[in-house]
Simulated scan of single mutants.
Amino acid sequence: MSSGVMEEGNPTMKLYSHPMSSCSRRVRLALNLKGLKYDCINITSAGDPELLKVNPMGYVPALVDGTTVISDSYAILLYLEEKYPLHSLLPQDLTKRAINYQVASIVSSSIQPLQNMTLVNYIGEIAGPDEKLPWAQHHIRKGFIALEKLLVSYAGKYATGDEIYLADLYLAPQLDNAINRYKLDMTEFPLLISLNETYSKLPSFQQVMV
């Protein structure tokens, strides 16, 4: 899979990814929005030898850009923003920029790790299978309460205005997980529902959220 056009003379980047990984989806969204060409290598096992050569932790995403190898979605996104500034992932306004950082932190630190399938399956093993869904829903809901309140003063068409920024790249995959994988009741989150509906209509997001 590839998307967009890279700077002339640069080799195609490689992204080690998994279709259902929200961390990988963030990076794929950024690459698509920036119009960067890349080969998407889908990994089905954390023990995949090819992945381990790039990231000994065995996690996706991992990006190879020439001789530069980067793991962790946040590090990759900041790298892409600095090296390929076309279609900036961060607003110029410092307050809105800080809100984007905060949204990214809430999703990546306070929600996503606690609803990760590895942890959810472990909860099922130690507490019983009936506890898996309530566990995930509880932690997602807690984070969504914070996000709904945080964004009410900043949202426009997208999370922090009328341009797609870093916050949107984190929100879209997390909303998809909450709604489609964990069946969270979204009634109390009208702003997040509205954002999710907007994301679902964008071709650059449709390519990734499948």
Rank of each mutant, 00 (worst) to 15 (best):
V5G: 09
N177T: 09
A146I: 12
H139Q: 10
E188G: 08
K96Q: 10
P11V: 02
L86E: 15
V5D: 15
P113E: 03
N10G: 13
K157G: 13
N42R: 12
S3Q: 09
L151R: 03
V54A: 06
H138D: 13
L89P: 03
Q137L: 05
S73L: 00
K132T: 08
P85D: 02
E7Q: 15
M117G: 11
I43F: 08
K201M: 08
Q102P: 11
E50D: 14
D162N: 12
G161I: 03
V210T: 13
M186P: 04
L114N: 04
N180T: 10
V5P: 11
M57G: 12
Y101V: 09
E188D: 15
E197T: 10
M57W: 11
G9L: 04
I140G: 08
P190C: 08
D130L: 15
K37N: 12
P203K: 01
P129H: 15
L184Y: 00
V5F: 10
S45F: 11
L166V: 01
I70M: 01
T68I: 07
V210A: 15
D48S: 05
G161M: 03
A146K: 12
H138T: 15
D72K: 03
Q102A: 11
R181P: 04
S17T: 05
V54F: 06
S108A: 07
G143N: 05
Y101M: 12
F144A: 05
N116C: 02
H138R: 13
Q174W: 03
I111Q: 02
T44V: 15
N121I: 09
R141L: 12
Y199S: 00
T118K: 15
G58K: 01
L151E: 05
G124L: 07
A178Y: 03
D48Y: 03
T198Y: 06
L114Y: 07
A127V: 11
E50Q: 11
K34G: 02
V152G: 12
M20Y: 13
R28W: 06
L94K: 15
L94P: 10
V120M: 09
P134E: 09
P203H: 00
Q92H: 14
K183W: 05
C40D: 15
Y165P: 07
S3F: 09
V210M: 13
Y59Q: 12
I76S: 00
H87C: 12
L15Y: 03
G9D: 06
T12P: 05
K83R: 11
G47A: 10
Y199D: 00
L150C: 02
P56M: 04
K96Y: 09
L89C: 01
S108G: 06
D72H: 04
G156T: 08
L80S: 00
Y79I: 00
P190W: 06
L29G: 07
Q115D: 09
E8T: 09
Y84E: 00
Q137N: 07
I70E: 00
L169V: 05
